[in-house]
Design a protein around this nucleic acid. Sequence first.
DNA 1: TTGAAAGCGCTAACAA
DNA 2: TTGTTAGCGCTTTCAA
Lengths: 342, 342
Amino acid sequence: MRPTTKDLAKEAGVSLATVDRVLNGRPGVRNKTVEAVNAAIEKIGFVRNLSAANLAKGKQYRFRFMLPAHGDQFLGELRARIDEANQGLGVEGMVLSHQEVSHSDPHLIAETLSQIGPDKVDGVALMAPESPQVRDAALRLKERGVHVVHLISGKQQAGDFDFVGIDNQSAGATAARLLGRFNCRKEGKVVVIAETMNARDSLERRKGFDMVLTRDYPHLSALPSLETYGDPRRTRDVIANVLRNNADVVGVYIMSSEAKPALDALAAESDPQSLIVVAHELTSRTRDALMSGEADALIAQNPGHLVRSAVRLLRAHCDNRSVVKSQEVIRIEILIKENLSV
Amino acid sequence: MRPTTKDLAKEAGVSLATVDRVLNGRPGVRNKTVEAVNAAIEKIGFVRNLSAANLAKGKQYRFRFMLPAHGDQFLGELRARIDEANQGLGVEGMVLSHQEVSHSDPHLIAETLSQIGPDKVDGVALMAPESPQVRDAALRLKERGVHVVHLISGKQQAGDFDFVGIDNQSAGATAARLLGRFNCRKEGKVVVIAETMNARDSLERRKGFDMVLTRDYPHLSALPSLETYGDPRRTRDVIANVLRNNADVVGVYIMSSEAKPALDALAAESDPQSLIVVAHELTSRTRDALMSGEADALIAQNPGHLVRSAVRLLRAHCDNRSVVKSQEVIRIEILIKENLSV
DNA sequence: TTGAAAGCGCTAACAA
DNA sequence: TTGTTAGCGCTTTCAA
């Protein structure tokens, strides 16, 4: 049997209460006693039973996903996975929720974050574009004792917070490689479509894309990124325009995670079957596109994995545990017709 | 607060013990009482606290992975992921172990399974080729009260056991599509290399492969599958031989999950850079091959996901819970140089 | 600065 | 067929 706090107390020659105080780093214990307990922990190889601790504390882990208010397809998937995970995780004493906030104004996001406290929530998975306001609000949230991880948006380099999501530069590079290889040495232009180039995500995707395309496929030249601002009408206009002005377009890279407007516009303004089209994320629309030949490949991050990874990280933070980092890397998935599965 | 067994007992007008008996389906309760308790459960929306139950029972979930004794690369990965998961899962009261057994003799596998009982293990994730002996042994294991899921090998169609792994026919189809698209309409032959064609996995991969290749790439013709029996020497011989007899080989599909022998042989007997090579699974050798250009794409199942999914399924079986099936689908990953990540 | 004792939600003898 | 009670490993008053 694994040693318990009782064994530990006996070994250290102190009471259960003192053991508990040491284990939880509570004050009011003599330094010497602390050392004695720690020595005993080493000696008998004590490991805490967190379930029992949570039971005694009556503790639940309450995690909140902060998501953008706009965007229906990919975000719908994400919300569905959160709800799904919530079902399964209830067993383990975790409660997930999600809250929507418009991404148009950083102040609004910061304001929303400032309303959250440790009384309501133990951790937040924050999907929001980088900005000083949000950064500050997140830091203050952390100070108030609410754990934070960044989700999908924001920078992945180790900063103040863990990051859950794909490496966007590699994602862009992957898109370029697929476009290049699928295209078979035909010369021409490549259209790049983004919602906005103000977000770090888009910039990094573009950077990775250009790097591979210019180095390995000099016969392909990528046009300047088109910005759609998520507006279907504008999307159609810019796409119609670029196709009118460039007769030799051979490929399209749809960079934004909501690909529907661009795919719809392409279908209306051209014959996408004759173009190599690479888009992001698996949604009902991109799935259809793949099946119909409108799109040739998708670059995706699995929303289920995103959710579970965020939860594992938040949980680890709450318990003051470390995680196996390699287990939390979100893979850049390449999806074609054949490996869609289900 | 969530209602507890106490609330439930009060509501149903019975004692805690009776509530417990009903919750656990134990005998010795009048039908009428059972109904009363069930009604109360509905009424107050009672959900069981499994952690508390496990604590009271002193229960640990002990899961055993049964793996083939041979195979170093992919299996090494798998074992590493099991050990890794074991670290993290200890917190939740689960203990993972793995046991190796030679795949050469179905009787030996069956024999090994027959030694396992509910005293040692609560669930088994079984990786073994299909055979009547193994099937029987697994069924008897289940009867003895040990939960079983099939891992990687075996049939994925809903049978007596859950299956954790990729759809092999789709995997083969994916390989063919990549070979076809990467090859750019050059005519020629495709070499297919397997460990053995006696395993269902290989047959299904080949089936999916041929389906796509013959339908969509008639200018490519796949040669009969070469069997290596996992022997490096033989591997080299058959590959040297096939290359000698076919001047117009343009692509290679390495079907087995241990790709190293075939990759090594290809490197020795040809210029793999000029061939389109698709292999299975991400290992140190296939990773190198991707980076060096020896291989153009990998079809992979993520060993970490395999392990965690198997654990979730076994755990759900133990608790008599249902799982979200869509969450347990193992994706067929396409890996190229750019999306290797880490 | 320390300890004794009650209790978290559930299970399992034992008694009735 | 049902209930009483002690206890799982840990936390948390309250008292010393």
